[in-house]
Design a protein around this nucleic acid. Structure first.
Lengths: 238, 238
DNA sequence: CCTACCGATCGGTAGG
DNA sequence: CCTACCGATCGGTAGG
């Protein structure tokens, strides 16, 4: 059989990013060598450096492409919703949008597990500048989800609970690739409604301020729950 | 002022593990150098090696101590429950136990953020043997939570949903240190009931098999949801 | 002879 | 697109 045609520059870059994402996801960024990336892509290390300027660029592009893809998913769901806001008739449209967003995010994990893992676990190894830009985009993603939840449950927003609940949702979703095996008996498609049901039926039942007696003594007024600056991923102290 | 007394061997080791956990959590295991660990502990590198045999041992002991601490937390909650199974009278005891376990796990994140982050994010860098032993202990922890949930909602166990729901719970909890700042307006103590309420009110509402029309066509019988082998953390392909 | 520790440097390998 | 290397720095250990 003939040797496959050398792909174009753009395609070769795409392939390299895919191999790099798989290696970063499996081994972590710092312990993945450029030689491994080159081998996986079927290139010499020198040739690899013909397509990318350095190791950081691989991480930067994988992460940015992934967060862009997540935004695009939200775009699509919202566009479909605005075209037909009625939803599925058995639930209010605001809730239907939240459900659709959750199911879409979960479903997206099927084919993007590697890049998503890089986005959540390896971003800490990015340069400070690239990391800041990425976190900004991630915060925007959180805000879009939080906005949909606020329109569904406005009372929660007044209590300052929307951002925390949104982050709990991201916790469930981002933790998936940690335990969900693509070859397991449980698929992403069958898990998506589970996550959506759990969140959608649980959220209306949370009790805002928490007047329950906790371990801490009465050392002040009941703490009003405030929204901390939400950071989708850990950050690196100086 | 006199030079402080040299702490005992055990105390010095404990201090070293604490500094290493902080560095591993902040920078990741591979990019943390033994020199940094030594500096943080106020020791020379050679002296550091008097207390630990190698870098892997640091990671191994931090992770094992942390999973042991989590088991101890579960022990305590269950012991308290068995001493007084009635719970808080306004909810069934099985549900009260699940709530107590959730709140205890969340509260535990207050003082153990570094070690927990190491446990969830850095275990992949452990040797295969140590990693296997640790994952076994983590699976046992998941099983203990799943057992409590099963006793509360036996119907979910028959549908094979307990392990997935347990992992969603761990997702919310393990994701906390990613966005919850200790100095933020939102404390672990005020968040714990939020997580518990969300889970406890959401779980009874999940619909088992999912007879909803999904995107996939009718290419077979409705997939029976099975429990995949739950892995609390990612694993390293060969 | 022990412990606790130091300054200096080893062999090997990383990214480029 | 490869072989041959570099400056640096890693984890770990030597002698005293």
């Amino acid at each position: 059989m003939a040797r496959p045609r050398a792909p174009g520059h753009h395609d070769q870059r795409t392939a390299i990013l895919g191999h790099a994402a798989a290696l970063f996801a499996a081994q972590g960024y710092p312990s993945t060598t450029m030689t491994q990336v080159a081998d996986a892509a079927g290139l010499s290390k020198a040739t690899l450096y013909h397509y990318v300027s350095d190791k950081q660029q691989l991480l930067r592009e994988i992460a940015h492409a992934q967060v862009d893809a997540l935004h695009a998913s939200v775009d699509e769901v919202i566009a479909a919703f605005e075209a037909d806001p009625a939803g599925s008739a058995d639930e209010p449209p605001e809730r239907a949008l939240v459900r659709a967003l959750i199911e879409r995010l979960v479903a997206g994990y099927a084919g993007q597990a590697d890049a998503l893992r890089v986005l959540t676990d390896e971003v800490r190894y990015l340069d400070a500048d690239a990391q800041d830009r990425l976190r900004q985009r991630q915060r925007e993603l959180v805000s879009r989800l939080a906005g949909a939840i606020t329109r569904w449950q406005p009372a929660l927003a007044e209590a300052g609970l929307v951002k925390p609940l949104t982050m709990l949702l991201f916790g469930m979703v981002n933790w998936l690739f940690t335990w969900l095996r693509p070859d397991g008996g449980l698929s992403h498609a069958s898990l998506a409604p589970l996550v959506a049901d759990l969140f959608i039926h649980g959220v209306p039942c949370v009790r805002p301020p928490v007047p329950r007696a906790s371990k801490s003594g009465p050392d002040g007024p009941a703490p009003s729950v405030q929204t901390a600056q939400p950071l989708p991923s850990g950050d690196l102290p100086p």
